[in-house]
Amino acid sequence: MTSGWLAFAGTVALVVGAFNFIDGLVALFNRSYYLVGDDKIMVFNYTAWGWIWLVVGIIQIAVGGGIMAGQMWARVAGVVLAALSAIGHLAFLQAFPWWSVLTIALCVLLIYALTAPPAGARGA
């Protein structure tokens, strides 16, 4: 059985993964881009956040492909990573509010899209 929600979820997972990957690259290579005057966001500096977002983004892109292929492990991993990404972007709100709000909204939408279809459904 195919599900439009899973095709949508796979696409959103790829987009959120790309957003997080870009966040990581920006934090690593252009530290003055973000709006925060202090070098710390919560407990990490920009370099640590850069590596965190880079790794999370790469994993989310891989999970997006798994979601499109209809893998149940990818749906579970997608929900977990979307929740962690939303929480991480709450901490990142001070540095870049509009980007973080957009990413949090996409993560919430992704969680819904991954949990709404029945088990065994595949992306279109």
Rank of each mutant, 00 (worst) to 15 (best):
M1E: 11
T2V: 04
S3V: 04
F8R: 02
F8I: 02
A9Y: 05
T11S: 05
T11F: 02
T11V: 05
T11C: 03
A13V: 02
V16F: 05
A18F: 12
F21Y: 13
F21L: 15
F21T: 06
F21N: 03
I22M: 10
I22F: 11
D23N: 10
L25M: 12
V26C: 15
V26T: 14
A27W: 11
L28G: 14
L28W: 13
L28Y: 04
L28T: 03
R31M: 08
V36A: 15
V36Y: 14
D38R: 12
D39L: 14
K40Y: 14
K40F: 11
M42A: 15
V43M: 14
V43H: 11
F44A: 15
N45A: 15
N45R: 09
Y46M: 06
Y46K: 08
W49D: 06
W49G: 05
I52P: 04
W53N: 13
V56M: 12
V56W: 00
Q60F: 10
Q60E: 14
A62L: 15
G65Q: 07
G65R: 06
G66Q: 10
I67W: 01
M68K: 04
G70L: 04
G70E: 10
M72A: 12
M72D: 12
W73V: 02
W73A: 08
R75L: 07
V76D: 11
A77G: 11
V80T: 01
A82L: 00
A83H: 07
S85R: 05
A86L: 12
I87H: 03
H89R: 01
L90D: 08
A91T: 06
L93T: 07
L93P: 05
P97E: 06
W99A: 09
V101D: 01
L102P: 00
A105V: 15
V108Y: 03
L109Y: 09
L109E: 05
L110N: 02
L110E: 02
A113W: 00
L114G: 07
L114K: 00
L114C: 11
P118Q: 12
P118E: 04
P118L: 04
A119Q: 07
G120R: 15
A121S: 13
R122Q: 02
R122M: 00
G123P: 07
G123C: 01
